[in-house]
Design a protein around this nucleic acid. Structure first.
Lengths: 229, 229
DNA sequence: TCCATCTTGGAACACCGTTCCAGATGTGTC
DNA sequence: GACACATCTGGAACGGTGTTCCAAGATGGA
């Protein structure tokens, strides 16, 4: 690990934690979660494994740093002056889109919520959402539960959508989103009527639904619940 | 893979997909996610890798089968005759407890929701919850969104709780749940007041909260939202 | 009995994250 | 300018993983 002093580097091609994380994000974006290996990382950075390990403790820390960087960027703007509800929707959509752009985020966010509350990522999200919840007109005793529920839903739903998008692409890259939904809906309609009456009943809704819209619908559902109680 | 015909086996120590999955679940429960390797699996089953691969395509399929087995067991009973709300709460709690007993389920459920809707696990949960949603007195157009939101919240929240429990145990097995919460709450209270006012404000609630209660509180929040709209 | 088929065990392979260390590179001191 | 020193680098090597391959054992019907 670089010490606080002497961290200045003259060479422009010098390795740094930032350059490594940047390359890691790039690799994750283009080659997926399994595409990030120290082998290809050393190749792309034209260095050796030992050099990377000097700046980063292990692969877990590298993934955490990559996650943190992307989430921080996604949560960055947010200077608008809207109602708490709209603000929450905006934060949620920001995360949704970030996960959509970087599908590996889904797994990472789930995994790192665990190391909470020490990791840097989750507290940021929790705080951001919670501040808006407290601006809502609800009793303070409900803040913790309400915020937790919102964050759980947002992370869960965004992750699921991203995962679906990824697997759809992997299964057959030539098929677009509509074709994928159509195939899935048809599969649902062909389920056993005795075992899966409900799933069959909503297959049509599933065929025409829009991911973002449905995601926001879920956020509104939770928000309604929070305000109503 | 065993062919439909000739699958009868006389030897009592014969290998079978079921025996393999059973051993896998045991291994996952006792040694965690990283404890399931083909090496120790072959040892415990007193066989070779090739034999296992004849019954199971790869590790992913083995994990999926293990997940399916445990979830099916957790969702099995449910013959009670209660209100849709109570039924949903019961299913949610069943999954919550299953994840608590088998922490590796959290990761797996998230990962396998992806292969949805072809996997066997998710449709089961979706159908089970959805049936109760349709028994609620809400318009049919909302069924799909409502059920999706519920499932997303349940899976997300249960997974997070399990992950927290695991990491708490890993960090220091001697510290009990209360001690863990206390330490976490204290850490929250020591955050920068300017950056984390909300998190500091709810630290006390976090200290005394009960996982199951809060989980159910979230379910009720979503249910309220569904009914209110 | 014989043979086609199903099933097994284990050696071998490619690849992974990680460790180790010899040496290059830069920095401060006389 | 030269020396000592801490920082930083590249690559070989290690133990472990999931997976493949295949020769041999077991099984059941003709």
């Amino acid at each position: 690990m670089p010490s606080p002093t002497h961290r200045a580097q003259r060479r422009t091609d010098a390795l740094s934690r930032e350059r490594i994380v940047e390359a890691a994000v790039e690799l994750l974006d283009t080659a997926g979660e399994s595409g990030l290996t120290f082998r290809v990382l050393t190749e792309r950075l034209a260095t050796g494994a030992g050099a990377i390990y000097w700046h980063v403790a292990n692969k877990g820390e590298l993934l955490a740093a990559a996650t943190d960087a992307v989430v921080a960027a996604a949560l960055a703007p947010g200077g608008s002056q809207a109602s708490p509800q709209e603000e929450i929707r905006a934060v949620a959509l920001g995360l949704f889109d970030a996960i959509d752009d970087h599908p590996w985020l889904a797994t990472q966010l789930s995994a790192q919520f665990s190391r909470s509350p020490w990791g840097a990522v989750t507290p940021r999200i929790f705080e951001r959402i919670g501040r808006q919840v407290s601006a809502l007109d609800v009793p303070q005793e409900t803040w913790f539960t309400a915020t937790s529920a919102l964050v759980h839903y947002i992370l869960g739903a965004a992750a699921q959508n991203a995962a679906n998008a990824v697997s759809a692409r992997e299964l057959d890259p030539s098929v677009d989103r509509a074709g994928f939904l159509d195939a899935a809906a048809t599969a649902w309609e062909e389920l056993d009527p005795d075992d899966y009456p409900f799933t069959r009943a909503v297959a049509a809704q599933m065929r025409v639904h829009d991911d973002r819209e449905q995601f926001l619908g879920g956020v509104d559902l939770v928000l309604t619940g929070i305000i109503t109680r």
